[in-house]
């Protein structure tokens, strides 16, 4: 049987991590426990983070919104500061797994698993999220693009845990959009997903566009060329079609059981066209 440690406060957490440096950390376990089941041999010691109140905070801090790493997807989804103001994130979380998975899985878990198909990640990329890390002695903060280094690879040192993410104050986005393409409507792993933030002038001209795709590269992918192609032009099928073309060239999807690279590339571009139908 695996040893499971359930620290009740941060002091106990640091003690547990020092006593069991080989231990695996988890909160909801929706990724880690599935992986351990498939693993041969005795399971490692586990440190469960779910009782740590400090990690579940969702609050405004000096103009930023802080989302604790231990907050479940359901808690974030239901939070008024997210639901009302960050529909791009709320829509992504609403498409994540199933009610059961959203009630167990946490934002921190989605970050550390660092799957290119992690549903919370494309919104965090376009929102300019920074990841807050803490250890017993210190803390550091780095942009999500630097924290996530590849599939399953993150910049996390021994003795560190993810405290949460900081989202800069909303920059007056006129349009927030998220769409996920899966093989079915629930419990679906993204074949492709798109998070988009657009700021439009009163004439409907794009002033700024931020686009991020899931499942089309080793990490969530941005396509600056596509964003540039939209800037300064009216939002419509013409500009979006051009951006779609450029996005298709910039992304680096792979073939797997769920879909081919060429399907992913094509649909990644196509998803931009939906923005033409979105009410600003």
């Amino acid at each position: 049987m695996a040893k499971v440690i359930l620290p009740a406060d941060m002091g106990q957490l640091w003690e547990a991590m020092e006593a069991h440096p080989e231990a695996r950390l988890y909160a909801g376990g929706t990724d880690l426990l599935v992986r351990l089941r498939a693993q041969a041999g005795p399971p490692p010691a586990l440190v469960c983070l779910e009782r740590l109140e400090e990690l579940r905070i969702i609050e405004e801090r000096g103009g930023e919104l802080f989302l604790g790493a231990g907050a479940t997807h359901a808690q974030i989804l239901e939070h008024p500061k997210v639901r009302g103001r960050l529909p791009v994130l709320a829509r992504a979380l609403a498409s994540l797994g199933s009610p059961q998975v959203r009630n167990m899985g946490t934002l921190g878990g989605n970050l550390v698993t660092a799957s290119p198909a992690g549903d919370s990640l494309p919104p965090l990329y376009v929102l300019g999220a920074e990841v807050q890390l803490i250890s017993r002695k210190a803390g550091r903060r780095l942009p999500i693009t630097e924290f996530i280094k590849g599939p399953g690879r993150v910049d996390l040192n021994p003795g560190e845990v993810v405290a949460g993410v900081c989202l800069p104050k909303s920059e007056g986005w006129t349009l927030q959009h998220f769409e996920k393409v899966g093989r079915r409507d629930a419990l679906a792993i993204a074949l492709v997903s798109l998070a988009a933030l657009l700021r439009l002038s009163s004439e409907g001209v794009v002033e700024e566009a931020r686009l991020a795709w899931g499942s089309v590269g080793p990490t969530v992918m941005r396509a600056p060329q596509a964003e540039a192609a939209l800037k300064g032009r009216p939002l419509g099928l013409a500009s979006l079609g051009e951006a779609a073309e450029l996005a298709g060239q910039a992304l680096t999807p792979i073939d797997d059981l769920r879909a081919s690279a060429s399907y992913r590339r094509r649909v990644a571009g196509n998803l931009l066209l939906r923005l033409a139908e979105r009410e600003a």
């Binding site: 599935v34 199933s98 093989r183 079915r184 409507d185 629930a186 419990l187 679906a188 792993i189 059981l257």
Partner: peptide
């Protein structure tokens, strides 16, 4: 259900997709 050279490529319910109530 996929198999290549007799090896199952869709070995579990994460890779073998069945409809859910939402579908």
């Amino acid at each position: 259900f996929l198999a290549r050279e007799g090896r199952v490529l869709s070995p579990d319910l994460a890779t073998y997709i069945i409809p859910t109530a939402l579908d």
